[in-house]
Design a protein around this nucleic acid. Structure first.
Lengths: 338, 338
DNA sequence: TTGCTAATTGACACCGGTGTCAGTATGTGC
DNA sequence: GCACATACTGACACCGGTGTCAATTAGCAA
């Protein structure tokens, strides 16, 4: 069984290889009858065009790079799944590129990834979505890219973001609807723009409900488990502690759960604790964690979708899309006990 | 700034493109002076050879596929990290291919991945490592592959495995050393060969210590959180419950923790609970979980290492490697209270 | 039927590298 | 000095597709 090349197909169908190429690419000006002959030959021979040769001729690689630096393995996995789904559908492949965003080499690493692999496009996740030097490099090299979860807007780039303000607002309203008034909040890492957005959602829900914002109830965390413990300890140590705590992510919420458990505080009866992100731990904690599920996977697939569209149309579109999060109620939240 | 091809380099260095190619591939029979000229040209022009063209000429793709179907995102992430590390070092790229091992299409999916992307090699993770139909297909198509965590041995294939028997033995010995004699065990999914291996390790440690194996203490789980709950409930409901429970993975151990917590059983003072795998939840649970850390990442990098070696040497080696796990002691285990 | 436009097809160069092989330069033993 | 092996080097075809452009065929009005 020798290799089935375009020449073999052409001979088999009795046409020139250029005509085979035309059928392959759905080009116009091919008669129905020849098209049929060629298609039959495809099937009979089990022909698969070589992406290498194709790429060499068209200066494409059918490769899309995914850049990330996220310790949250679940997030990365969801992003990959969403991206792959669309890549597969369109005959593209995904090259994953985890890299340390604080390292000097991350930029040159991405640079050489592009030149070496001849990437057709790049998917950026936070914090790369907002990394100015990177965006400038990509712009100057005219590489197509799409930014996921970017907070700094630029008019001429593709972008898919989640509505964190709205999600945090929704969560806070939910807690209020349970009767809570004393609601603590643990902020995320100060460098991450989403931290501010989530805090904003919290604030606007309180304001809307006419609840005064108590600065004692607001603690600065950094998205890590241990910071959740610290902030939880401070909140629960207050003279008049909150009856509900909203942590900006699930790991910090888990930290609060631990502290509460150590102090024999019954959750959710004495205290409601909620998180953000729907990390896998939510289900394995006891009690399981009420949280916001981010449309991570959907964001990734939409991102790749508009990226591929953009590649095909040579950068004509500048689409931006925004997706909403979803409230997932589990065991860690309950109505306020009167 | 036009594209820097091999022709440009050749002109710049004043040699033929073939000579440039020789330097590129470290071929013999190039004089020191020419080599220097060409190398200088490389640097001055920032030349990067096109993998597409190279691949077209040599019938290689410099692409390695990674096949998996594992709901454990942390495991997948570690595998990817380990594999990528070595790929990068050797100028290969990794194509990830998650697929449902129970689906009929998984086999054809892998098949078309190979033909379409012209993969140079494949890394298989469980359960694909032991999927006979897949291995036969790869053998007949003469695709190089390496199996991670395979349990069925075949003499002529590359293989990297972990020593689960030894790890489970080590864990059980640790519990015994704490003074425990009544040690419960929750078996893993009956279809996974590692389940039996872990159970074996448990048994042999007990035997060695002269502790009789009590069949009441052995429960059949399926690696899932809920099965951990069920088995935990049964074990703790015994007239003479165990003082330590060894679950075959961390999720089931988390289930036991939940049940214990609901029953107000103090861990680790009244009951030691240990898991296996070192999943991320170990650190976020309270108390944090004593477990076995599998050398997942190292296994992946070694796998890719021997795979690439094999590709280069045209399948001459049939190496097998075995790596040991590591006991990680956290808060969930303590000496038996007398 | 003729003339003209539009649709269809194929010859051939080219993408950017590598393999083959023949040609030239260099070194060695006599 | 010569014969010969050995070290370098480059011309050219080729990998498997696509782009260009010219040639052929078909369709249709006059």
């Amino acid at each position: 069984m020798q290799k089935v090349t375009i020449n073999v197909v052409a001979k088999h169908a009795g046409v020139s290889k250029k005509t085979v190429s035309r059928v392959l690419n759905d080009e116009p000006n091919v008669s129905q009858s020849t098209k049929q002959k060629v298609t039959d030959a495809f099937n009979e021979l089990g022909y698969r065009p070589s992406p290498q040769a194709r790429g060499l001729a068209t200066n494409q690689s059918f490769l899309i790079g995914l850049v990330y630096d996220n310790p949250n393995k679940s997030y990365v996995s969801d992003i990959q799944t969403g991206a792959l789904e669309i890549c597969d559908k369109n005959g593209y492949h995904l090259l994953i590129h985890p890299t340390d965003h604080e390292s000097e080499q991350s930029l040159t690493g991405i640079d050489s990834l592009i030149t070496e692999s001849r990437l057709d496009g790049l998917v950026l996740t936070p914090p790369f979505s907002d990394m100015k030097s990177l965006l400038e490099m990509l712009d100057s090299r005219k590489i197509a890219y799409v930014r996921i979860g970017a907070t700094v807007m630029e008019s001429d780039s593709l972008c898919v973001i989640s509505n964190d303000v709205q999600a945090a607002y929704q969560m806070t309203r939910y807690l209020i609807s349970l009767g809570h008034v004393q609601i603590g909040f643990i902020k995320g890492h100060i460098d991450h723009n989403v931290s501010e957005q989530r805090f904003q959602g919290y604030c606007s829900a309180l304001e809307e409900a006419g609840i005064e914002i108590n600065s004692d109830y607001i603690q600065q965390g950094d998205f890590r488990f241990t910071s959740g413990e610290d902030c939880g300890r401070r909140l629960l140590g207050l003279a008049s502690p909150p009856t509900a705590i909203f942590a900006s992510n699930d790991y910090m919420a888990a930290g609060v759960l631990k502290v509460a458990s150590q102090r024999r505080i019954m959750i959710p009866h004495e205290l409601s604790v909620v998180g953000f992100d729907n990390a896998p731990i939510c289900e394995y904690l006891w009690p399981s964690l009420t949280t916001i599920k981010q449309p991570v996977r959907a964001m990734a697939s939409q991102a790749v979708n508009i990226l591929i569209e953009n590649i095909r149309e040579k950068g004509s579109s500048h689409e931006k899309r925004q997706l909403d999060g979803e409230l997932i109620v589990r065991e860690s939240s309950a109505p306020l006990r009167v």
